[in-house]
């Protein structure tokens, strides 16, 4: 237990960037996750209920029995409820795409590092090719072929981002696959799958966790960006990116529509990035 608290201290308590303890950011992330999971219990109203008498109401006003704490949007929907439900979209797209791209990328990367020969050439060339197209453009061209929507966004993000994991998994596997314990396992007759997933994977998880954390923040931004451009999750589903795009059209009359979803997006990405930074500094003390 003491080891755990010591780890916790080193990770999150010492003077963090800007003097704010990093624990604050863990708390923000945890709060957003809880809000996303229990959205139906927390949200004061249905996020999709329109109220044409209560359009574009500023924060803290009431119209037709609905109290708009954060104001209402162009269709009179409660902004607070939409922001709360938006957390669901952001987090679920990010979690699913990180899991999917991680699974594909790590498997391919480990295979390339372990098997060598043509597998290595094919996989690593593919990685180079994917990484030489700016990610957002690759995502846009795939969405324009497949069409927008929740599932396609997750698929496209996974297809776009797997090379990141593959590259790290490849390098780590290369470094580790000649270690005596790996050779021993092989000599004792362990098949390649057993060696890869039982002996190599657990020992390369730490750097991959850092990649996954930083990618998580990026995935949140990507989903919001695609939705902002109208290529992501489609209306009426509440997505922070789509809400920002509506808010963009009402900057001069209704500042709140863009401000609050943007703030949540910012806090989520900021806390994930800071936690990722912390994690990488902790796992790699030389970089400090």
């Amino acid at each position: 237990m003491t080891a755990l608290t010591a780890t916790w201290r080193r990770l999150f308590l010492p003077q963090a960037n800007g003097g704010v303890p990093a624990g604050v950011f863990v708390a923000i992330l945890a709060a957003l996750v809880i809000v996303a999971i229990f959205a139906p219990l927390i949200a004061p109203y249905n996020p999709d209920t329109q109220n044409l008498m209560g359009r574009l109401k500023p924060p803290g006003t009431e119209a037709r029995g609905t109290y708009y704490l954060l104001g209402s949007d162009e269709l009179g929907r409660d902004l607070l409820s939409r922001v709360i439900y938006g957390a669901r979209v952001s987090l679920s797209v990010a979690v699913l795409s990180v899991i999917l791209s991680g699974a594909v990328g790590i498997t391919l990367g480990m295979l390339a590092g372990y098997r060598g020969s043509w597998v290595e050439v094919v996989v690593m060339r593919l990685v180079d090719i994917f990484l030489s197209i700016p990610a957002i453009l690759l995502a846009i061209i795939m969405v324009s072929v497949l069409g927008p929507g929740f599932t396609n966004v997750v698929l496209v993000l996974a297809l776009t981002r797997w090379p990141r994991y593959a590259r790290v998994a490849y390098g780590q596997t290369l470094a580790i696959s000649n270690q005596p314990y790996v050779r021993l396992a092989r000599a004792m007759g362990a098949g390649p799958l057993r060696v890869l997933f039982l002996h190599i994977l657990p020992n390369i998880l730490a750097p991959l966790a850092v990649v996954a954390t930083l990618e998580f923040g990026l995935m949140v931004l990507f989903e919001a960006g695609l939705s902002f451009l109208g290529l992501g999750v489609q209306p009426p589903t509440a997505s922070w990116g789509a809400m920002l795009s509506v808010g963009r059209n009402y900057v001069s009359t209704a500042w709140w529509i863009a401000t609050f979803p943007g703030l949540c997006l910012f806090l989520l990405v900021l806390s994930v990035n800071l936690i990722g930074d912390r994690l990488s500094a902790y796992l790699n003390p030389k970089s400090r």
Partner: peptide, 15 residues
Amino acid sequence: VLGAQSMPTFWSGIL
């Protein structure tokens, strides 16, 4: 500086 990096451009732009 770190905060600026985490700020989505479409939010900072709108602000």
